[in-house]
Design a protein around this nucleic acid. Structure first.
Lengths: 151, 151
DNA sequence: CTTGACTAGTTTGATGTCGAGCTATATTTG
DNA sequence: CAAATATAGCTCGACATCAAACTAGTCAAG
């Protein structure tokens, strides 16, 4: 038995801390974002703007680790706001491709700017170097969880 | 301006990673927990079992960083399952105190056990020492976000 | 006292997410 | 080619959560 009581407690505490940070951060982002746009919507716009659009919904769902149904929902509200358009996939009739509209790109820029004040307020309090240093470790934890999703 | 483009990207990435880990972990826990009990319910039971019951709902809400309304909901479902009982506060007529029932304690033990197999499967893949080493840093980030909740 | 400000918990309505099942298209296999 | 299997996206019902408004009890100021 390699997993002793103390380690198990620590793992719980780790995930607990992660959960609370996520809660606080997303609440903060949600309050900053304009027009009642949820952070999950912003994340998709951001992803498309930074890494390029023309992705399939499934690709996006996997990138954000949400179900297909959730991504359908997210994309449909982004579409209702005319921030994206869905086009049929050229060679696969089942699939679609997601493209940013001009309004979508514009909104993404505006949304990033709207986060500025909050980020600035945290500046000097958050230790960026430490956070950056944690990134590889977090990515590793993420990878392990991802590989074992069927537990 | 101390927050340059690269740092801002890193901060985004940090919170993104956190969000995905939280997503994967809570999904995993939810699947392991018996009888359709949600991880948020388990967390409350666990808290009461480990740190002692007789807390007020507000205390619990603050401990888990959820709104009062959410805690009301969580406690009401725990109460419906007879895992807790709510008693009036002795000296403050507005308040209540949360107590574990025998069934609640029993369930908490069972729930912890039900997480065993998943934890065991992750054993050897997760680097506990690194996770433990991250705890203080995470707690610090949490504290900063907590202090600046009104941004 | 009594009034006004505050606090604990509840309620309400909206929304994000999940899981499971569905449809339509692709792909593989016999 | 036909049938079976797999995949992309959608739909549905359930549920956790939030924000904001509400109720009831407390406490302080005058």
């Amino acid at each position: 038995m390699t997993l002793d009581e103390e380690q198990r407690k620590a793992v719980f505490q780790f995930f607990n801390e992660i959960g609370i940070i996520q809660q606080l951060a997303s609440t903060m982002f949600n309050k900053c974002l304009p027009d009642g746009v949820h952070v999950s919507h912003f994340a998709v716009l951001n992803h498309l703007a930074r890494l390029g659009d023309g992705k399939t919904p499934l690709t996006l769902a996997e990138a954000f680790q949400v179900t297909k149904g959730t991504m359908t929902h997210t994309l449909s509200t982004l579409s209702k706001r005319s921030f994206i358009t869905l086009r049929p996939h050229a060679t696969d009739g089942r699939s679609k491709l997601v493209f940013l509209t001009a309004a979508g790109r514009e909104f993404q820029v505006r949304a990033v700017e709207s986060l500025g004040p909050a980020m600035a307020a945290l500046d000097g309090k958050l230790d960026y170097d430490r956070m950056i240093a944690m990134l590889p470790e977090l990515a590793k934890v993420r990878a392990v969880l991802d590989e074992n999703r069927d537990l």
